[in-house]
Amino acid sequence: MSPTPRLSVLDLVPVHSGQSSAQALAASVALAQAADRLGFTRYWFAEHHNMPSVASTTPPVLVAAIAARTQGIRVGSGGVMLPNHAPLVVAEQFAALEALAPGRIDLGIGRAPGSDPVITQLLRMSGPTADVDRFPEHVADILSLLSAEGATLRLTSGREYPIQATPVAASVPEVWLLGSSDYSARLAAELGLPYVFANHFSGEGLERALELYRTGFRANERHREPQTILTLNAVVAESADEASALALPNLRAMARLRLNRPMRVLETVEEALDAPRDGDVDEVIARMRVGWVVDEADAAAGRVRDLASRHGIDEVMIAPVAGSRAGGPADAAPGRERTLELLAGALTA
């Protein structure tokens, strides 16, 4: 049998029809507490903006809330989209989070916009700090700012000006680089950072990205060897048929996104099952479904284990994308919680 990878959770805080943002966030709190009880390694929030079905707009706020409501699980961002923010602000936020929950905070950094072009422009009105071409420089700035020594700015007068993200750091967040391209893999290797491949969004180029990362990795005092996480969309239920039904709302939403159709709140399972057939949507779903784990517990666990073994992955970060049934609790996500329970149980059995 293949080794069992560590398990973690990626949460976009989905919002379905008949549900408010407050209820969606309450469901995510309950899900994070379940992941904590089940022994998952970490719980991360993605950063997305102005999307009707996604409430994970502010990872630092959500990280603070979950860190205060859990005991041992690491909590972090998956990730902060750095071009949307000033590096100093990001460093200050996560230094404060680390001070509040020492040894439990992760800062996952990405360079994608996390939204449409209009919202991207609104987020990036801060000028040169939002220059995507300066992404490597800004990542390095954050690493320096988070260190106990801080960073030094040389002013035009020639005087050196010390900067720290927090006055007296006793520990620092663990920084991860996220991506799904050669660029991110090479940069993570060059900086000697652990690397997350965003397989939940695009599984293309996985093998090449991992090879570039591992062969180019530069060891440092904090990270002696490469470390990898693979994200994965998953729905696990008592039967394969039930898992397929629960996966349909998110599959249809992703298909609409890829077809550039108007986005809306997630359908309930019943709404998705009753929706008129659409050949274009069905075709996109069929292609995406191949890369998702949608099955009963033992089969799903086997796929997760084999995937991690085949690519030498240290940790699999599950995006539990089970939909909600009509009439279910608005402030909980039974299908998502059951995905974590069944998968964790099958992998450790």
Rank of each mutant, 00 (worst) to 15 (best):
A240W: 09
L143T: 03
R154P: 09
E315R: 04
L347C: 02
S144I: 09
A67D: 07
R42I: 00
A219V: 04
R154E: 13
M1H: 14
F40H: 01
A308N: 02
L230Q: 05
S2H: 15
D278G: 07
E270I: 08
R6W: 07
E337D: 13
L343R: 02
D331E: 07
A24W: 00
A297W: 02
L100A: 12
G328V: 06
L31R: 04
E190G: 11
V284S: 08
Q121E: 15
A308P: 00
D131P: 11
L155Q: 06
P173H: 08
F45A: 03
D36F: 03
T70I: 05
A326Y: 11
A297R: 00
P59I: 04
L7E: 01
A151E: 06
A26S: 08
T231E: 06
M263P: 10
P249M: 02
L251E: 14
H48C: 02
V118K: 10
R74V: 06
H311M: 08
R218S: 12
E296M: 06
I66E: 01
A95H: 01
I105A: 05
L307H: 00
V61Q: 11
D116I: 00
R305M: 01
I73P: 03
D298Y: 03
L10V: 10
S324W: 12
A299M: 05
L210A: 00
Q19M: 02
A67L: 08
I163L: 14
P59C: 04
R252N: 10
L100N: 09
L12T: 14
G203V: 11
S53T: 08
E160S: 10
H311A: 09
I229V: 12
V63P: 09
R42H: 02
A46Q: 01
F40L: 00
R74A: 08
S2A: 15
R218G: 11
S20F: 02
V15T: 06
L7G: 01
A209N: 07
E149M: 11
P136L: 07
A65D: 13
E238S: 15
G203W: 12
Y43L: 00
A297I: 00
L307M: 01
A34N: 08
L123M: 07
L307A: 05
T268R: 03
N220P: 00
T215G: 10
I119M: 13
E225L: 10
R104P: 03
L259V: 05
G78L: 07
L31P: 01
R134E: 12
R287N: 10
A333F: 12
G108R: 08
D36P: 05
R338M: 12
L246N: 04
V293G: 02
D274C: 12
A26G: 06
N50F: 13
G323R: 01
E204A: 15
I318H: 00
E221F: 12
S17D: 15
N250Q: 12
P60T: 04
G205M: 07
T120Q: 15
E137H: 13
A322M: 02
R289S: 11
R310K: 14
L88R: 05
A300K: 07
N199I: 12
L7C: 05
A234K: 01
R252I: 11
G312H: 08
G216Q: 13
P117T: 03
E337W: 10
G335K: 03
G72C: 12
V80N: 04
A349E: 06
E341W: 00
E242R: 14
V15P: 05
D141N: 13
T41R: 15
E283A: 15
